[in-house]
């Protein structure tokens, strides 16, 4: 009995989505094989990791990751430049936390100014994220899309309760769009259909099936991503072919394992390495299940995920 390489080929293909501009533009997706199985298909683009920053100081981030940015995080422009110039960020994700009614309730106009300032200071692609408040995002992200017009940004997240205005704005200002649903492949599919029915090009869409942290529902995100990718490739379902986003940092840097000190939980070992490992392993698991774009916080975690990706391709 001699060994024959068991190959599987698929009819479907993940859409290629580019964002940013000029020589710093990035492309994700384009896969015609399962993650990192390049012996049986094309995987033209490596997963991309974006550094997460926000429009107000990260008071709610645990020490391990807040300390890293303590000298720059008072101002989003300084913070963005630091990530680009000092950390070598390939992309930056700006979360407009302070527009949330409970976190400062800043206006859409203030958010627009922040976006303009950040865009003026960096050359790498920008991902613009709302505060995850359904009503507020529907006005803030519309203004954000306009403020970032011409920069080919990624805007998000459009959800079932607010997608119409956000889709229209992304369409009008020629941005890419993140569609987010909550850990259910059918909801992800339905939202993608609703958005494309508005005339939004499916090749400009990124799907976010909702992230979860290692130990806190990661298996659900992992399997939903795997099923989305299989549906897109094996069943050639066009509504399941957008590249996939894993919004890792915000889910990881609040769980007990990234917060509790070694003094409190001696059996868990060093807090610093534990937190970094938590974000790293969450991200690595998700690139294996299909994520094409990750949003992360700790430079050391980002570096190690990058090294893992380099080993995988």
């Amino acid at each position: 009995m001699s060994f024959v390489v068991p190959k599987e080929s698929f009819n479907g293909k993940v859409a290629s989505v580019d964002f940013g501009k000029d020589d710093k533009a990035l492309t994700i997706g384009g896969d015609s094989a399962l993650p990192f199985l390049s012996f049986e298909g094309e995987l033209p683009n490596k997963p991309v990791v974006a550094y997460e920053i926000q429009d107000c100081p990260p008071d709610d981030w645990p020490d391990t990751v807040r300390e890293v940015y303590k000298d720059v995080s008072g101002d989003p422009v300084t913070w963005a430049k630091y990530c680009q110039d000092e950390q070598g960020a390939k992309a930056i994700a700006l979360r407009l936390v302070s527009t949330h009614p409970d976190r400062g309730d800043k206006s859409a106009e203030e958010a627009s100014q922040t976006i303009k300032d950040v865009l003026a200071a960096i050359s790498v692609p920008l991902i613009i994220l709302g505060s995850n408040h359904i009503e507020k995002d529907s006005t803030v992200l519309v203004a954000a899309a306009e403020a970032a017009s011409g920069n080919n940004c990624v805007i998000g997240k459009a959800q079932e309760g607010n997608y119409k205005t956000i889709v229209a704005a992304a369409l009008a200002h020629n941005h890419k769009l993140i569609a987010m649903s909550e850990l259910d492949i059918n909801l992800a599919k339905q939202l993608n259909i609703l958005i494309t029915q508005m005339g939004f090009d499916k090749n400009k869409l990124i799907t976010d099936p909702m992230c979860s942290a290692l130990g806190y529902g990661l298996e659900y995100t992992y399997s939903v991503m795997e099923r989305i990718r299989l549906a897109g490739l094996a069943q050639n379902d066009p509504t399941m072919q957008p590249p996939i986003l894993g919004d890792v940092g915000m889910y990881v840097w609040k769980v007990k394992e990234t917060v509790a000190s070694e003094a409190d939980v001696p059996e868990w070992g060093s807090l610093e390495e534990r937190g970094i490992a938590w974000e790293t392993l969450t991200a690595t698991s998700l690139i294996l299940s299909g994520a094409n774009l990750l949003i992360m916080r700790h430079p050391s975690a980002i570096e190690n995920v990058g090294k893992t990706i380099d080993e995988l391709v």
Partner: peptide, 30 residues
């Protein structure tokens, strides 16, 4: 940290045994 990350690749992708160089508590917990 990289070792833990590569270990997680093997765990997710079908290894029955992984061999690591050290078993610090933070690493094994993850």
């Amino acid at each position: 940290i990289l070792e833990a990350s590569i270990a997680s690749v093997a765990i997710a992708k079908y290894a029955s045994i992984i061999v690591v160089s050290s078993v610090e508590k933070w690493k094994t917990l993850a």
